[in-house]
Amino acid sequence: MPSQRSISEAEKLAEAKLGGIPVRREQMAAVANIYRAASAVRQHLENSVLRSADLTWTAFVVLWVVWVWGESETRHVAEESGVSKGTLTGVVRTLESRGLLRRTGHPTDGRLVLLALTPQGEEFMRRVFPAFNEEEAFVTGRLSDQECRDLADGLRRVVLQVEEEGEDRRTALLNGEKPTPRRSGRRAKG
Rank of each mutant, 00 (worst) to 15 (best):
G20S: 09
W64A: 04
A32L: 07
A40H: 03
R42E: 03
W57H: 09
L63A: 04
W67V: 07
A29L: 07
A53E: 14
L45I: 07
D54C: 15
L50R: 12
V65G: 06
R25T: 01
R51Y: 13
Y35L: 04
V31L: 15
E46P: 00
E46T: 00
V49M: 15
M28S: 00
I34G: 03
W67I: 09
Y35F: 09
V23E: 01
I21G: 00
A30C: 10
V31P: 08
D54K: 10
A53G: 02
N33K: 09
Q43L: 04
V31I: 15
R36I: 12
M28T: 02
W64N: 10
V62W: 11
E46C: 11
P22G: 05
V49S: 13
V31W: 09
E26S: 01
L50K: 14
A40S: 13
F60M: 15
A40F: 09
L45F: 04
D54T: 14
A40C: 07
D54N: 11
Y35A: 13
L45C: 02
V31K: 00
N47Q: 06
Q27A: 06
W57P: 15
V62N: 10
L55V: 14
Q27D: 07
A37D: 06
W57K: 03
Y35W: 04
I21M: 14
W64Y: 02
H44T: 02
R24N: 01
V61K: 12
G19D: 02
T56Y: 15
M28A: 03
P22W: 10
T56H: 14
